[in-house]
C-alpha cells in the first residue's frame, strides 16, 4: 500500500471528537475519494494525513512504514482554498514547492513553464492571482501541488468553490492529468457524482464523529469522459453511495 491509515482518531481539546477509528488504504497510482456530510471530519483527516495535525490515536504508514521524520513534507496537500499568494505571479506561486526543495529559480521556472499548457495557464504565467478566474486559480493551486513532486496527493474539495459547468470541465481535465502521471490521489468531496466519476474506490464517511460507513469500488472503464455520467451504471453507483449519505443527513436532522 502506498498510504495506509489504521484506527485514526482525533479528539480536539474541549472534547469534540472529529474522527473516530478511521482506516483507509490507497494503492500505488490509485484514485480514491472520500465523500461525507459536512462536518464529518474530512478536512481533519486530510490534515492528519498531510502531517499537519497529530492524530489522537492510530497510525499512518507511507510505503509500508511510518516515516521517521513524520509525514510533513512527504505528502502533497491541496487545501480547500487555493491559498495563492497575492504578491507572487501565477508561475511564482506554482513553483513555491520547488523553491523550497532547493531547486534554483531558473530551473523551477523552466519546469513550471513546461506544464502551464497542460494546466490551462498558458499566457497567464506572469499575471497576479487576482487576475485569474476561479477555475484558473484552482488549476494554479493544483500545478503548485503537482510540481512539488510528491507521489501521494491529498486534495480537499478542489472544485468546491467553482460553478457547476467549470466543475465538470475541471473533473474531466483532472482525470486527464492523473491518467498521464498516475500519482496516488486521495480526493475529499461532498459531491457524489464527482467521487464516482473520478475514483477507483469511494469511502463514505458518517457524521460526527467521522467514521468510514461504507466503501464502494467503482468498476467503470477508463479513460472516462463526461458522457459516462449519463449511463445506467453510473446512476446506479451514485444511488448506492447516496443511500447511506441520505440516511446520515436524515439522522442528523432528526437528532437536532
Amino acid at each position: 500500500m502506498k498510504l495506509a491509515a489504521t484506527g485514526l482518531a482525533k479528539r480536539f481539546p474541549g472534547g469534540i471528537e472529529a474522527i473516530s477509528d478511521v482506516s483507509i488504504e490507497l494503492a500505488d497510482g490509485e484514485f480514491v475519494s472520500i465523500v461525507g456530510p459536512s462536518g464529518c471530519g474530512k478536512s481533519t483527516l486530510l490534515a492528519m494525513l498531510a502531517g499537519l495535525l497529530a492524530p489522537s490515536a492510530g497510525e499512518i504508514a507511507l510505503d509500508g512504514a511510518a516515516p521517521p521524520g513524520g509525514l510533513l513534507g512527504r505528502v502533497g496537500y491541496m487545501p480547500q482554498r487555493d491559498l495563492l499568494m497575492a504578491w507572487r505571479t501565477t508561475l511564482a506561486n506554482a513553483t513555491v514547492g520547488l523553491e523550497l526543495s532547493g531547486v534554483t529559480r531558473a530551473a523551477a521556472r523552466e519546469r513550471a513553464l513546461a506544464e502551464v499548457g497542460r494546466f490551462g495557464l498558458a499566457g497567464f504565467e506572469d499575471r497576479r492571482p487576482s487576475e485569474l478566474s476561479g477555475g484558473m486559480r484552482q488549476r494554479a493551486a493544483l500545478l503548485r501541488t503537482f510540481l512539488a513532486g510528491r507521489e501521494v496527493l491529498l486534495l480537499d474539495e478542489p472544485f468546491g468553490a467553482l460553478d457547476a459547468l467549470t466543475r465538470e470541465a475541471m473533473r474531466e481535465w483532472l482525470l486527464g492529468v492523473w491518467e498521464a502521471d498516475r500519482k496516488t490521489i486521495l480526493l475529499v468531496t461532498h459531491d457524489v457524482e464527482e467521487a464516482v466519476f473520478l475514483s477507483d474506490r469511494v469511502y463514505v464517511m458518517s457524521g460526527r464523529p467521522g467514521r468510514v460507513a461504507t466503501e464502494v469500488a467503482v468498476a467503470l472503464p477508463r479513460p472516462r469522459t463526461l458522457e459516462l455520467t449519463a449511463t445506467a451504471e453510473f446512476a446506479q453507483l451514485k444511488a448506492q453511495l447516496l443511500a447511506p449519505l441520505r440516511e446520515e443527513a436524515r439522522a442528523a436532522l432528526g437528532a437536532a
Binding site: 510533513l72 513534507g73 505528502v75 499568494m85 513555491v96 523550497l100 526543495s101
Partner: peptide, 26 residues
C-alpha cells in the same frame, strides 16, 4: 498571516525562516 497558508508551506517543506520570508513578511 493566513494560518492555512503557513500549513500549506509546511507541507511543502518550509521551515520558520522560509515561512517568514515567503508568507509572513509579504
Amino acid at each position: 498571516t493566513d494560518s492555512e497558508l503557513v500549513g500549506l508551506l509546511r507541507t511543502l517543506g518550509a521551515g520558520r525562516w522560509q515561512i517568514l520570508r515567503i508568507a509572513r513578511l509579504p
